[in-house]
């Protein structure tokens, strides 16, 4: 391990103070890999030297960058793979049978920089059962700045390397200098808007599927319960809810029924609650 213990302790304390997120011992390499680009950019030789410069002189800008680098979860395309396989092979074909109006509405409730809603569109474009259907994806996030990035639809080489096979990349993106821009076919069905899950939802209509992945983990039990109750109100009675791999509704809101979908699970509203 090459980051010095003092440097790790300093960073860990800073991150805990500013974000309430705890970096456990063993995350030294994570600190090192996330801070190396910052250190390089600042012209410091290595992460230790960079952290030392922060210890010597308080620099609010650099401190904020350090906290952001360690708390921003870099999102992958088709994250966890299995939910998108379930979407393509099971959920979309079943919805295709149930919907006569050839329209599908999906809500990505914590869309971050856009990888999830765009992955949903690319998956739908790859599903013959819904070929030619009208798709409407509402993508929301608390953070307006990250929504701006998502709307732009431009990603660095590093970002497209996270989970995008080269064939998908050349099919749905165009090269723009050192970056890649998402094609209008994929971006057109997506609308980005700010939304705070803790507050009552604005009018959004009814959805056939809701992606609420890896976001409930940040809330306490009463808030989780309240969010799941309000999601039920915007989901079609025969719609599907996707949660993160480590999340479940059991013991939180028992109005949901867990259903196996390939190697992952999806949730539907129980018959008596519809």
């Amino acid at each position: 391990m090459s980051i010095a213990p003092e440097a790790f302790t300093f960073v860990r304390d800073l991150v805990r103070r500013e974000s309430a997120i705890v970096l456990d011992p063993g995350k030294e390499y994570l600190v090192e890999s996330r801070l190396t680009p910052l250190a390089r950019h600042a012209g410091e030789g290595d992460v230790d030297a960079y952290v030392r410069s922060l210890q010597v002189r308080h620099d609010p800008v650099r401190s904020r960058q350090v906290v952001e680098a360690l708390t921003t979860n870099e999102t992958s395309w088709f994250r966890d793979a299995d939910p998108f396989t379930a979407l393509r092979t099971q959920v979309l074909p079943e919805l295709a049978k149930a919907r006569t109006n050839r329209q599908l509405r999906v809500w990505c409730a914590a869309c971050s920089s856009g990888q999830e809603p765009y992955s949903v569109v690319m998956t739908a474009l790859d599903t013959p059962a819904v070929a030619g259907w009208r798709l409407d994806v509402v993508a929301t996030d608390l953070n307006e700045e990250i929504l701006q990035r998502a709307r732009r639809g431009t990603y660095s080489q590093l970002e497209v390397n996270r989970g995008l096979p080269a064939t998908t990349l050349v099919k749905h993106f165009t090269r723009e200098g050192a970056s890649w821009r998402i094609s209008p076919t994929v971006s057109a069905p997506v609308t980005f808007r700010p939304l705070n899950l803790m507050r009552p939802f604005p009018p959004m209509g009814t959805f056939d599927a809701v992606f609420l992945r890896n976001v409930l983990i940040y809330f306490d039990l009463p808030t989780k319960r309240d969010i799941l109750r309000r999601v039920r109100q915007v989901l079609a009675p025969d719609g599907y809810l996707f949660l993160g791999a480590a999340e479940m509704t059991m013991g939180v809101d028992d109005s949901w029924q867990r259903m196996p979908a390939g190697r992952s699970s999806v949730y539907r509203i129980r018959g008596e609650e519809r």
């Binding site: 391990m1 063993g26 030294e28 390499y29 994570l30 090192e32 890999s33």
Partner: peptide
């Protein structure tokens, strides 16, 4: 693996 936090 180390960079992903699985050094231990």
């Amino acid at each position: 693996l180390r960079q992903a936090g699985f050094a231990h």
